[in-house]
């Protein structure tokens, strides 16, 4: 088993989301990295190809100007089907290598040969699942041959059978698996707004901050009395506060902002060209916080 370590800091970037591709000028944005959604570039599992025809050239061109980060949504990392049958192994692992990604990240959801039930199925925060998921994660990281980071999820309801808080589960998971964390600060905020007994304040105190490879920043919307992680608005202030605090206490390798279309619900606001300024303003604010924090860390040495 190869020794896998946390990469050095890269900088700030944005998710290359196909749902806003027709109006958002990704290629001209001044950022260090683009997060590539592997599920959007992978060819179907019931065909002969790894990457969709025609996309290899596009990805290669993007790679000339940006560091490309592999992000998986539907790898089925924590499902119950044999690991070797998953998209993670059959498609994402070769694709992550193809784009020269320094690591790969995926969410903490269940999924078995599926895509769309995944967002509705957070994993159970139980002791048995720490063992099962961690052992599976360790095996998968070895197959990837690069750091594997687990992203904390936003959810309307925890999976029944939970025995601990999410932050405690994440901490124990990576302790056992020797994998890493992809910290979605907006998901933490969203859960703290919607869920009783979900503590925003002690989250960063509970997880091993040295294991945080990457960070997601995003915004959401209120609908029918619930706050939704729909990535359809600017990053809210409590998330900026959390980001500032994290940067004082940890050194992630990348910060990624997320914006998307109407992926999950018809009540999601559909963004358009008028939102370009909102996104670039968020990106610049994230970069300023990053630059200041990195300068402080340099000065402290």
């Amino acid at each position: 088993m190869a020794m896998i370590t946390k990469p050095s800091p890269i900088g700030v970037g944005i998710q290359y989301n196909p749902e806003i591709l027709d109006w958002f000028p990704f290629e001209s944005l001044k950022v260090d990295l683009l997060e590539i959604l592997l599920d959007n570039i992978m060819a179907p599992m019931d065909g002969p190809q790894i990457i969709k025809p025609g996309l290899a050239d596009l990805i290669s061109k993007l790679g000339e100007n940006f560091t490309l980060l592999a992000h998986s949504n539907y790898g089925c990392d924590f499902g119950f089907s044999p690991l070797e049958t998953t998209s993670a192994v059959q498609r994402h692992a070769p694709l992550a290598k193809m784009i020269n990604s320094p690591w790969v990240a995926n969410h903490c959801f269940y999924g078995d040969n599926s895509w769309l039930d995944i967002w509705s199925s957070p994993i159970q925060f139980s002791n048995d699942e720490i063992v099962r998921c961690a052992d599976r994660a360790a095996q998968l990281q070895d197959i990837y041959g690069m750091p594997l980071a687990h992203e904390n999820a936003a959810y309307y309801l925890p999976c029944p059978g939970a025995e601990m808080k999410e932050a405690e589960f994440m901490a124990k998971l990576v302790e056992r698996s020797d994998t890493f964390l992809h910290l979605d600060l907006h998901n933490i905020y969203t859960n703290s707004v919607n869920l009783a007994n979900y503590d925003l304040k002690d989250y960063l105190d509970t997880i091993p901050l040295d294991k945080v490879i990457a960070v997601h920043l995003a915004g959401g919307s209120w609908a029918e009395g619930i706050y939704h992680d729909w990535h359809d608005s600017q990053v809210p202030e409590p998330v900026w506060d959390l980001y500032e605090e994290l940067m004082q206490r940890a050194t992630p390798a990348a910060i990624i902002l997320e914006y998307q279309g109407q992926a999950h619900h018809e009540l999601t606001r559909v963004m358009g060209e008028q939102d370009e300024n909102m996104i670039t303003t968020d990106v610049k604010r994230a970069q300023a916080i990053w630059d200041r924090a990195m300068a402080n860390k340099k000065g402290a040495k």
Partner: peptide, 22 residues
């Protein structure tokens, strides 16, 4: 267990169906 919190769980169901329709 899901029935006890179905006001929240129904969002999972609605989202799932919305994604599938697309």
């Amino acid at each position: 267990a899901y029935a006890d919190d179905y006001d929240q769980a129904k969002w999972f169901v609605e989202n799932y169906q919305f994604r599938l329709v697309n």
